[in-house]
Design a binder for these strands. Structure first.
Length: 566
RNA sequence: UGACCCAUGGUGUAAUUGGCAACACGUCUGGUUUUGGUCCAGAAGAGUUUAGGUUCGAGCCCUAAUGGGUCAACCA
């Protein structure tokens, strides 16, 4: 049986990764000395989210696949948007996903001097010039996608003058916006990006790493490809919206490369997930307006949020692999991510008994004050996880929804006169239902069968239901937080003209402050994962303090008793 | 009067490179089960955007059309 499973797993068609296909071809053709070297180039202007996880897995995963390397490079060419605050969280999140850039941590700003020298070289070759015109004029002259641009009057400026002006730009002689350096490409190109793109702008602004050393900063199109070149990158993997930039990327590399070595840009589609907001701007608003507790709120699609929620690196990586890497834009069902996470957690999470909506049960024929240990399985998927002891007492809590006074035929759990199994303990039968003045059920009385210890009856009689339970006197009172999707529309990112606040799911967080859990978890560490029997996957919150533990629900279990009853 | 990219069940991907469309998620049945979980067995669901062409044969190749997307930041 297990052999078949292994075979099926190995032969199961994997989702396509067309980046692998292209890289493999390059290696086989012997390009760049058969090297494979990629990079993950985040701009340090926000927290990483699940969309970045795909990029990280593609970048580092491609290197891993071909025995190459992957650098981490902070694309910090715009000091007005960037901050050190994000540099640390980004590194933490990449490491958490299980990737290592070793000693290859770079900043685009590391290359500012080289970038400047290359720019000078381009000017000397007559391929770049200083334009004195204001932004609006340059923009006008650029034309439109359907109408060619017109050349700047400064385009034919002499090399000497360009050199002089560029040096003075660097010295800080001009105010912001006074001049720019542009590449001399082709103002009539059908590709807007080739119409003499800007290479440098003046920005009198302190940079988070270079301080006030520079007042001119390179633009993305110029800097990115050259940094790839300096770092020896062979495959520059990015998302689809950079497709039209590729000719320019290649143009710059062509001007500057002095050997056969050429980095190559390959674009793949970015991740879109149902019910998930990926817009950095809106995520920032959620945080700033306190609509969530922070970037690591367990409902956030950020990696820090998912980590806190209990999603695992393995689950996330498996999700990306199931999804594949292609150029087709689509919308992946959130259920696929949840499945990948559950699949991983099912193997790893310790089983534990907890009650999140307690209803008291008194076992009337069980001795008062007696505490008896029953043996429970830690992980049904992993024998080596062993067993633990759980205290059983006269007063217990069960899940309120596990009892129905007028039970329909397919309700397998507790009802008056019905016998069920208290998991790992005894068979018990409900004898009395105690109500308050309002007619609400406040307590149940049951009797137990001492002969069924461990959960099996010597006479072989069967019960239909098995309930999880917890001792009312020997358990820990904890807080449990239940999460649901943050947005209630399928594609919140696409509804651009709608305020994202209107799309928030009002029931995305439910706090249950009086929950009970078996005492075995009291030494659990933050982020430890558990599967509460019959309830779902939970983890210990990262900020859970000693006095009262806090649990987050990572995911519910697939539970369809409601359907079966109907 | 533009350039570039994309197009297969509800969703994401396959299809030995031209040979009667497969896998995963989701949905639904049934079985096992000391978790209505897991696991196992099974079902429904697309004839591949359209129209031509090449071919004995096309989801794969060619042409055109249609639909969708990206590009006109001194952002990345």
């Amino acid at each position: 049986m297990s052999e078949n499973n292994v075979d099926n797993g190995a032969n199961a068609p994997k989702a396509r990764n067309f980046v692998y296909e292209l890289v493999e071809k390059d290696v086989m053709e012997g390009k760049n000395g058969k090297r494979v070297h990629t990079r993950f180039p985040p701009e340090p202007n926000g927290y990483l989210h699940i969309g970045h996880a795909k990029a990280i897995i593609v970048d580092f995963g491609t290197a891993e696949k071909f025995g190459g390397k992957c650098n981490l490079r902070f694309d910090d060419t715009n000091p007005v948007k960037e901050d050190v605050e994000y540099v640390d969280s980004i590194q933490e999140d990449i490491r958490w996903l299980g990737f290592d850039w070793e000693d290859r941590l770079y900043y685009a700003s590391d290359f500012f001097e080289q970038l400047y020298e290359f720019a000078v070289r381009l000017i000397k070759q007559g391929k770049a010039y200083i334009d004195d015109q204001p932004a609006e004029l340059i923009s006008q002259q650029r034309g439109t996608p359907t109408r060619p641009g017109t050349e700047s009057p400064y385009r034919s400026r002499s090399i000497e003058e360009n050199l002089d002006l560029f040096a003075r730009m660097r010295k800080g002689e001009f105010p912001n916006g006074a001049r720019v350096l542009r590449a001399k490409v082709d103002m009539a190109s059908p590709n807007m990006h080739m119409r003499d793109p800007l290479m440098y702008r003046i920005l009198h602004q302190a940079h988070h790493r270079t301080g006030n050393e520079w007042c001119i900063y390179p633009m993305y199109d110029y800097a990115h490809g050259q940094c790839d070149y300096f770092e020896g990158i062979t495959h520059s993997l990015c998302t689809l919206e950079f497709e039209v930039h590729r000719p320019l990327y290649e143009w710059f590399v062509e001007q500057l490369s002095e050997s056969d070595y050429r980095p190559r840009q390959i674009e793949f589609s970015r991740l879109n997930l149902t019910y998930t907001m990926m817009s950095k701007r809106n995520l920032l608003s959620l945080v700033q307006e306190n609509l969530v507790s922070g970037w690591d709120d367990p409902r956030m699609p950020t990696l820090s949020g998912m980590r806190r929620r209990g999603y695992t690196p393995t689950g996330i990586r498996s999700f990306v692999e199931k999804m594949g890497v292609t150029k087709t834009k689509g919308m992946v069902d959130l259920a696929m991510l949840e499945h990948a996470v559950r699949e991983d957690l099912n193997k790893k999470a310790s089983r534990v008994m907890g009650v999140i909506d307690p209803l008291k049960v008194v076992i009337t024929n069980y001795p008062e004050g007696q505490v008896e240990m029953v043996s429970a399985v830690n992980n049904h998927e992993d024998e080596s996880a062993g067993r633990r002891d759980v205290p059983f007492t006269r007063e217990l809590y069960i899940e309120r929804e596990d009892f129905m006074e007028d039970a329909p035929k397919k309700f397998f759990r507790l009802a008056p006169g019905v016998e069920v199994r208290l998991k790992y303990a005894y068979y018990a039968t409900c004898t009395d239902v105690i109500k308050n003045d309002q007619g609400e059920i406040v307590e149940l009385h049951c009797t137990y069968d001492p002969a069924t210890k461990g959960g099996n009856s010597p006479d072989g009689r069967k019960v239909k239901g098995t309930l999880h339970w917890v001792s009312a006197t020997e358990s820990l009172e904890v807080e449990v937080r239940l999460y649901d999707r943050l947005f209630n529309v399928e594609d919140p990112s696409s509804e651009k003209d709608r305020d994202f606040r209107e799309m928030l799911n009002p029931d995305s967080l439910e706090i249950r402050s009086k929950c009970y859990i078996e005492p075995s978890v009291k030494n659990a560490k933050p982020l430890d994962a558990f599967q509460f029997e019959r309830l779902g996957y939970f983890n210990v919150d990262k900020d859970s303090s000693g006095e009262k533990m806090v649990f987050n629900r990572t995911a519910s279990l697939r539970d369809n008793w409601g359907k079966k009853m109907g």
